[in-house]
């Protein structure tokens, strides 16, 4: 019936003209530190949570959180790109 080129609305689907990232933190057990496990793109918190859950599912995490990358203030990496480096 239909076979079309996907058309996107960047603003709605990506949360802006540039992608919006969330950093993903998780721990395996209460003895483990909460560590950075990666990064995921999402236009809203709900999708960030789900995408993080399915992309970084290498362990049965006891705890996982996402933080908008914009919210991260670098301390030692002053002057460099404020990205969080992959764990």
């Amino acid at each position: 019936m239909t076979e079309n080129e996907k058309r996107f609305d960047r603003k709605r689907e990506r949360g802006g003209t540039t992608p919006r990232y969330y950093e993903v933190f998780a721990r395996k057990s209460s003895a483990d530190p909460l560590t950075h496990v990666g990064s995921v793109e999402a236009p809203n918190d709900d999708l960030a949570q789900v995408r993080a859950w399915f992309v970084y599912d290498q362990h049965a995490w006891k705890e996982m959180c996402v933080v908008p990358t914009d919210a991260i203030v670098t301390v030692t990496e002053h002057g460099k790109s404020a990205k969080i480096k992959m764990n």
């Binding site: 960047r10 992608p19 599912d57 790109s81 992959m86």
Partner: peptide, 23 residues
């Protein structure tokens, strides 16, 4: 397949820091 597409996400994400637009 889910794993592999997760790997793709990890790698394209790194490329974004070099000016790539994944989308």
């Amino acid at each position: 397949c889910q794993d592999e597409l997760g790997h793709a996400q990890v790698m394209y994400r790194l490329l974004e820091d070099f000016g790539y637009d994944t989308h």
